[in-house]
Computed example of a mutant assay.
Amino acid sequence: MTVLVVATGNPGKLREMQTYLSDKGWKLQLKPPELDIEETEDTFVANACLKASAVAQATGEWAIADDSGLEVDALDGAPGIYSARYGNTDSERIERLLRELGEEDNRGAQFVCVVAIARPDGAIALQVEGICRGEILQTPRGTGGFGYDPIFYVPEQGLTFAEMTPEMKRRYSHRGKAFEALLPQLSQLA
């Protein structure tokens, strides 16, 4: 099995990636805790590539990184790459977003996820993007998920991400779509 270092210190993200990559011949492991990569770029693509490349070079192993966030049409794509830093907690981020949207009629939004894989020398071997279109509700619904999930409504499913089962969310989410694009190409790498 080829080691694939996940450019995160979050065991939850490692577990989530393992569900997508199980039985693909890769052994996932967290990046070393002392390795901290600051997201200094201004796009999801550039941040994912930056993290994957830095972790690969530091560890001498294949590395995978993702960068994702919410883009709201009426807010000119905000919070975008700042989605995780839009407040100190999930509820603060949701409150700020709803306050900024106010009574705006255009509630269109999309979750974006970019996944990048770097070779041990840091060269980017593969990058994919997944997008899930939806709408921002005026009040949260559901108890599952995290982040903006309770206010991100997917009309085709009639549910917010927070109301979906984990399996359903994996299938329809931006991250699920990115991994769906990644998997057919992954077998050609190692």
Rank of each mutant, 00 (worst) to 15 (best):
G147L: 11
V55M: 07
G144V: 02
E92D: 15
R133T: 02
L186P: 01
L126Q: 13
K13G: 07
P166K: 08
S22N: 10
Q127D: 09
A54S: 15
E100K: 14
Q57Y: 04
I94W: 01
L35K: 12
V72Y: 05
I124K: 09
E41K: 15
L14A: 04
R85E: 02
A190N: 11
V112E: 03
D36S: 15
M164D: 12
I94T: 10
K27N: 13
R170V: 00
K13H: 07
V154C: 08
Q138M: 11
G69K: 02
A7V: 01
T59C: 13
E129A: 11
C132R: 09
G12P: 05
R96E: 05
Q185A: 14
A58F: 00
F152V: 08
A48F: 08
E129I: 11
P150A: 06
S68E: 06
E156F: 04
P33V: 01
G145M: 09
Y20R: 00
T59V: 06
K31I: 03
Q157W: 12
T8S: 14
K24G: 02
W26R: 06
T8Q: 05
I131H: 08
L186Q: 09
C49N: 14
P166W: 03
L186W: 02
T2Y: 01
H174R: 09
G122H: 12
T160S: 15
L137P: 05
P33F: 00
R107K: 00
S83C: 06
A178D: 11
G9A: 03
G147D: 03
P155C: 09
A63S: 14
L21A: 01
D67G: 12
S173K: 09
T19V: 06
R107V: 03
A65V: 01
R85D: 01
L50K: 15
P155V: 03
E129T: 14
G147S: 07
Y86C: 05
L186G: 03
P11L: 09
A52M: 10
A178T: 12
M164V: 06
Q138P: 01
K169T: 00
M164S: 07
M164F: 03
G145K: 11
L159D: 02
G87V: 12
A74N: 06
